[in-house]
């Protein structure tokens, strides 16, 4: 397993579960966890689910990608409650996560990954 992991946060459980399917194709050795929907699996985000996804991830340093609205705020709250190091990126959700997964798999350094993610910043 790679030292860096990925966490995906979406308002929709199916979106959060779907993106890892795309990512694992290029990054079979990257730990990818996700949190989608509210605690009741309605549309929204849940700080508790995000925190669980952070803790479940096998890596201790994580790159986080999210969709809209409350997902960033709940991600920030969760990062304040964990000991793991979590980096948030305002990048295009799918493209950003895909880029990061490919580069982590290829053992590219975090600072190099961040350079590439900067060009995908849309938020």
């Amino acid at each position: 397993m790679k030292k860096l992991g990925i966490i995906l946060v979406s308002h929709v459980p199916d979106i959060a579960r779907g993106i890892p399917q795309l990512l694992t194709q290029v990054a079979p050795n990257v730990s990818i966890t996700n949190a989608g929907g509210t605690n009741e699996n309605d549309i929204g985000t849940s700080m508790e689910k995000i925190l669980a996804a952070i803790e479940e991830n096998k890596a201790s340093e994580l790159l986080a990608f999210y969709d809209i609205g409350s997902s960033k705020m709940n991600l920030e709250l969760a990062t304040e409650m964990t000991d793991k190091q979590v980096h948030l990126y305002d990048a295009a959700f799918v493209e950003g996560a895909y880029t990061a997964a490919s580069l982590i798999e290829a053992d590219v350094t975090l600072s190099e990954i961040e350079k590439q993610l900067a060009s995908l910043k849309i938020k």
Partner: peptide, 15 residues
């Protein structure tokens, strides 16, 4: 509020 609201108001009111 953080755990129950679901929308953006949850983390905002919670904070």
């Amino acid at each position: 509020l953080i755990s129950k609201v679901g929308g953006a108001s949850g983390p905002l009111y919670g904070t």
